[in-house]
Design a protein around this nucleic acid. Sequence first.
DNA 1: CGAACCCTTGACAGAAATCAACTAAGGTGG
DNA 2: CCACCTTAGTTGATTTCTGTCAAGGGTTCG
Lengths: 252, 252
Amino acid sequence: MIDAIAEDVRKLRLFDGVADTTLRKLLHAAYDQSFPPFVKLVEEGAPADFLHLILEGMVEVYAGARQRESTMAVVRPVSTFILAASVRDAPYLMSARTLQRSRILLIPSADLRAAIASDNHFAMNVVVELAGCYRSMVRHAKNLKLRSTRERIAAYLLRQSRILGNVPGYILPVEKRILASYMGMTPENLSRALKSLAEDGCKIDGQRVIITDRAKFEALADLSPLLDGPDVEASQAGVSLPLPLSDLQRLA
Amino acid sequence: MIDAIAEDVRKLRLFDGVADTTLRKLLHAAYDQSFPPFVKLVEEGAPADFLHLILEGMVEVYAGARQRESTMAVVRPVSTFILAASVRDAPYLMSARTLQRSRILLIPSADLRAAIASDNHFAMNVVVELAGCYRSMVRHAKNLKLRSTRERIAAYLLRQSRILGNVPGYILPVEKRILASYMGMTPENLSRALKSLAEDGCKIDGQRVIITDRAKFEALADLSPLLDGPDVEASQAGVSLPLPLSDLQRLA
DNA sequence: CGAACCCTTGACAGAAATCAACTAAGGTGG
DNA sequence: CCACCTTAGTTGATTTCTGTCAAGGGTTCG
């Protein structure tokens, strides 16, 4: 079992170059489990007993307070989520639920901390991963505070295109209501804003996005590495922007 | 010189229990420098050549885009800022400037990374520190997305009171325009909102805050560890909420 | 076939940004 | 020591934006 997991887990930057003994210690008490869609994996406020790695599927990380709820990230393979709570042995600050059937690897937080303490190389990987998570969250906050809703949406849509190789069209990777929540607006507001983007060079038809006037749309989105991240780093970040890499998302 | 610094630096959780040899390596090429108020220490987009530690004074961490600008944090001694960029050898995502005369310790990022790689204990400290920074930024984002402006303000004001030992009154640690920016609103809006809080149990007179009806005000603020942090953790986080600990801030 | 649920659209109310004017306080230089 | 200047803060009027409520279309799934 460990060997089967190890193969998938090796793809993770977090374990890159880590000694086999460390990996074995991390995996010996780990669970590799498949969950149906819409299952709550993590409850905010609960003690962080496990580090979660998503191997397959899609997970929404969200937070709530006083009836309200907001999507903080959508995580796709292969990456970790809520690493920070695990290493700190602190309560989760965010909840998580599957959006699709998902395969999740659960590593006991105590084992994680032990591995950090004993394996220098692994510790360095955790540092880099955590720093990436932090930078993702900084970008998220910056987006909320420095861009208008139309700009946020345009930046998001153009970013997706760029990640897929500057394709002119693609399919939205997540439901619009989740997108709306992620970007800090209501679904109604997103709907209206998307419609209005037609005059800025981007047409949205259902789940399909078509960039009709790239130059004009780029001017509105005004992508910047400091707000949107270099492509490379985006895929390193554990808790990051939705990363639509599956074939399904390419426009037919 | 190193010994003089080492004494101050030892207060930092980041260096707690770290071997003297590591500390010496970190400090041998470090600068310990005093800056006047309103000096830019860090420019976003620039390569992260140094880890910054604030030993005395007050530093504003902020970000800009397209004319707009937003305060992301106000940092007080003794803590680090922009640790993530340093360990990743990546461009700063945020700028920083002094708000008062401040004493800053600058440690070359390369030395920092070398120390992480060679000293396991230090690496663990960095992991914990970074995780704290991450959690602070998550809380900041959650505040923006889950609370209304009045709630954000009330939570901030009550948090300060709590940090100072549940005092009924105190002096605001930073200018209101910076507070407004930090909380994602205009100064005008903050001004009006502050005034309106009188009917919710908190009177603001200039820089002075007086909680007149604690029960009522607590109900509005609705503090939660998941949004505001436990007192302990707040002071651990490197990039964190403004922490008004100086005597000046206690109400006469 | 019906029941959810997502998305859209419209009408409205509320909140926030903007613009402008004014006050107050602190610092500078005569 | 005072006049002046700069800047933070406040207040008001107005516009723009956003959330809310309500209704209807479309899809999926039992």
